[in-house]
């Protein structure tokens, strides 16, 4: 039994993948709580695709993919924030318009220059097992930066996320705070895409925070729980991928979804309690 548990960790490959997933799930878990509170679940997947034109520029000019990817995702994220602030459209429509334009620009550049689309699909699907030491160091740095900024700006960020109108009345620079949050999300997403792939980053930004929301009440406990659940999903997913020979990114996502479903069952506001509540008849004059 112990052998079964220890076996996967004999390899550098799996240990590195584990570290990468933990680093990414820290940053994404913390930011994801704010993302879920704001109803921005669409943004992870969208920003992952917004990195594409930058990556193509990096590819064509033989400079850093990551740096250009971050630049294009940052520009796109701020564009989304600006469009959403005008109040013309629902937040998701703003995200969709910016992201599809950015992605189409990337596609047009790829098809016009005849560069390899295979690299693009590699970037989109990603593979945690391919993470090298530099990737891990980079994603750890990004995670530290993200968590640091969130800790520093904790109160204003949370206030502006829950009640932007009141935050503006209280004199907070809501626009700047939004720009900071969207910027952090763009950074975390692109760093994550480079290390573990876009599918896994999108999932880590949505699924563990949604589970944490079911299990904890305060924002900072939700952040801690969500980062922890992301790491746990990483461990479970790596075991599954090692023993069942499944795609690593995909099985980590499925593990995270399984954890979410478990949280949905056992949560005080979840399915089981809901059934129990419906079974027990209420007293006739129960106070509301």
């Amino acid at each position: 039994m112990l052998d079964l548990l220890a076996d996967p960790w004999r390899f550098d490959l799996t240990r590195r993948a584990m570290l990468a997933v933990i680093a990414v799930s820290m940053g994404c878990g913390v930011l994801g709580v704010l993302v879920v509170w704001r109803g921005l679940s669409f943004i992870g997947d969208a920003l992952a695709h917004c990195a594409v034109p930058g990556v193509v520029v990096g590819f064509l000019t033989r400079t850093s993919f990551e740096a250009w990817g971050v630049v294009s995702a940052l520009l796109a994220a701020w564009g989304m924030a600006l469009l959403a602030r005008r109040g013309w459209l629902g937040g998701d429509a703003s995200i969709a318009i910016v992201f599809t334009s950015a992605f189409a620009l990337g596609l047009a550049m790829i098809s016009a220059t005849g560069s390899y689309l295979n690299d693009l699909t590699e970037i989109l699907f990603g593979n945690p097992l391919a993470a090298g030491p530099v990737d891990i160091a980079l994603s750890a740095l990004v995670a530290l930066w993200v968590v640091g900024v969130v800790v520093l700006l904790y109160r204003p960020l949370v206030f502006a996320s829950f009640d932007p109108t009141a935050a503006r009345v209280a004199g907070l620079p809501v626009g700047l705070l939004d720009a900071a949050l969207y910027g952090l999300i763009a950074l975390a997403v692109v760093a994550g895409v480079a290390v573990v792939g876009s599918v896994l980053v999108t999932a880590l930004l949505i699924v563990p925070p949604a589970a944490a929301r079911l299990l904890a009440r305060r924002v900072w406990t939700q952040m801690a729980v969500s980062a922890g659940l992301g790491g746990l999903a990483g461990v479970l997913g790596l075991y599954a991928s090692y023993y069942l020979r499944l795609a690593t990114g995909g099985s980590v996502v499925l593990a995270a979804v399984a954890l979410f479903l478990a949280a949905l069952l056992v949560s005080p506001r979840g399915v089981l309690r809901g059934w129990a509540r419906r079974r027990t008849p209420r007293p006739a004059l129960a106070g509301r």
Partner: peptide, 17 residues
């Protein structure tokens, strides 16, 4: 399933799962 699951979370989890 739960009032704590928001619309966009439900869509997001289904989508990525």
């Amino acid at each position: 399933a739960s009032p704590e699951v928001r619309d966009d979370s439900a869509v997001g989890i289904t989508f990525i799962g």
